[in-house]
Nucleic acid binder design. Structure first.
Lengths: 342, 342
DNA sequence: CTGAAAGCGCTTACAG
DNA sequence: CTGAAAGCGCTTACAG
């Protein structure tokens, strides 16, 4: 491979001039610029990015830590990140943890290794020690997309998970539901913890009982929704509504309901979360909470870009969600309806 | 940041010894090894990956070029790649082209820049000039997951798209269908070209007419399936079956059929392609062609790993597909049935 | 506007 | 088993 040296020799200038002519054409004379450009072309020069990064101490790369690249949710967010990153000349390294938090550490280490300039984490269950040094300061450029609770203001982009979850439950209660079950994610994940609290707080607010057998943890996949849906519908006192903290789980519930001949929505209301494209294509179409996935990605990347360029970023950005009412929800059967005093 | 120099000073050895003690512990004396390890810990040493890569001329990174990270199909393949790459110490750079082939070039250039050791392309419409040099040789470690037609044997991992498409059409014909439409992808993409040929060849083989208005190009999204499905069902002579070259498009067809009150499968059979998880969760459950997505990813990565380690790889690997019969297909109404002489 | 020189941090023949 | 030295390919103060 050709190097600056080869170009310099052919153009009859120093390597310093080659470097300048290629990086800052305006600071060399037009005639040398031309000579260098021609020589670079002739020898088929292409700069060694490793050497450049080593010298400049910047890799122009960031790592996206994500729990699971399979998930439509995350790939949409990554798409948003990618769009903005590319525009600013940043490359993206995949930091898939396969849902094992043990692998998170190795991706954070890429920063110490100078292989990435920063971390954009879509995982929110990160040990504090990875982010904060002994003096209690943030030790690397990082933005977290998701909930993160800490004494230190780590820049975070998220939706209001608590409030969004409440909206769904409240909507059901307004229609007269009171036997409302909840299929959520791993409760140690701050995102699902917040949503589950939203569910509980709303039930409490309306003086509705919180039944343990109505609150189910899962991985929020199709199959989990399917299995836990069966579990709920087999209860001697089954719910009249199920809120799911993912669209996939909700669609799993839709399927088992059909198999068990429980009519949705007339006998059972089902609500999802995310508003994935497919939520509009299932039967019945899914009522769900819309999350601006691509915007979450873009906004996180924008924040990280700010940090990287030395600006003080907003420490926290909350993006709006929206309840999308479609066909999978309606008031419960008359005999199960709750009279709410407004 | 601490460097080898700092460790060397503290341990009282040379930088060469530090490097050896850390990379090949067995070639230094136990006592020095211990000193170095302790010193490294004390100063908080972490090796500079850029310097190492520059020196060793390998980045331990490969770029995954993919048309569209949003797509469930591709993210499953990437998942397979990731699993194996991680095991062998390789990092993955995202090369999302956002369906614009113009962006492919910049990802291939990462190899010249020494930023990646090879390319794993999930895009198959790559200009030959990016792969082959003036002497007609492959100029970089590359594996293509998908169809690639060339005089040069570029290592390729794929399914038999032509044959797989045929299986679906033949299955419909066996049941008596003859008015079979086809919603495919961009025909300039070799993958969809092969599938469409499979469709046409099967029709021809059974002496069935190939109707231009029955063959529709699209981006294979939900919405395209929905729109093109309407177009087909509005024809004065509508098809009794539609084969779609993605599950999403098939699910779009399912939706418009429902809205137009065309019963699936009794009045219309629908077949998808890919066997995404959701194909089992739609209504009716989708008959489709299974593709081993994760295996495609793993196999491609394995091939690339072989190339990277100097082995001659299999130039081409064809992975099996499978027709999965579910609820969305059945024989056509009696009056539309074709009598096939076997 | 240009060149000589230093240096980013590592690894590896070479010599002992 | 260990050290001195070179070098990967670039960029950038410094001096002119």
């Amino acid at each position: 491979m050709a190097t600056v040296k080869d170009v310099a020799r052919l153009a009859g200038v120093s390597t310093a001039t080659v470097s300048r002519a290629l990086a800052n054409p305006e600071i060399v004379s037009p005639s040398t610029r031309e000579k260098v450009e021609k020589a670079a072309l002739d020898v088929g020069y292409s700069p060694n990015g490793l050497a450049r990064s080593l010298r400049k101490s910047e890799s122009k790369t960031i790592v996206v830590v994500l729990p699971n690249i399979d998930s439509t949710f995350f790939s949409d967010v990554v798409h948003g990140i990618e769009a903005l990153a590319h525009k600013h000349g940043y490359k993206l390294l995949i930091g898939d943890t396969g849902n094992e938090s043990s692998r998170i550490g190795s991706y954070f280490e890429l920063f110490e290794s100078k292989l990435v300039d920063g971390v954009l984490s879509l995982s929110s269950d990160i040990p504090e020690s990875m982010i904060i040094n002994a003096q209690g300061e943030i030790k690397l450029p990082i933005v977290i997309a998701g909930e993160y609770f800490s004494d230190i203001a780590v820049p975070t982009v998220h939706i209001d998970n608590n409030y969004s979850a409440k909206k769904g439950v409240e909507y059901l209660i307004m229609m007269g539901h009171h036997k409302i079950a909840c299929i959520t994610g791993k409760i140690e994940n701050p995102v699902f913890n917040a949503r589950t609290n939203g569910y509980k707080e709303t039930m409490k607010k309306w003086k509705l009982p919180i039944t343990e057998s109505y609150i189910l943890e899962s991985d929020l996949s199709f199959i989990s929704g399917y299995n836990l849906g069966r579990q709920l519908l087999s209860l001697k006192n089954p719910p009249s509504a199920i809120v799911c903290h993912s669209d996939e789980a909700a669609i799993g519930v839709l399927k088992i309901a059909r198999e068990m001949q429980v009519a949705v929505p007339s006998e059972l209301s089902v609500i999802g979360f995310d508003n994935l494209a497919l939520s509009e294509y299932c039967v019945p179409e899914l009522t769900t909470i819309h999350q601006p996935r691509q915007l979450i990605g873009e906004t996180s990347m924008k924040l990280l870009l700010d940090i990287l360029s030395g600006k003080k970023p907003n420490p926290e950005m909350t993006l709006p969600t929206q309840l999308i009412v479609r066909e999978s929800s309606c008031p419960p059967p008359i005999d199960q309806r709750l009279q709410v005093d407004l």
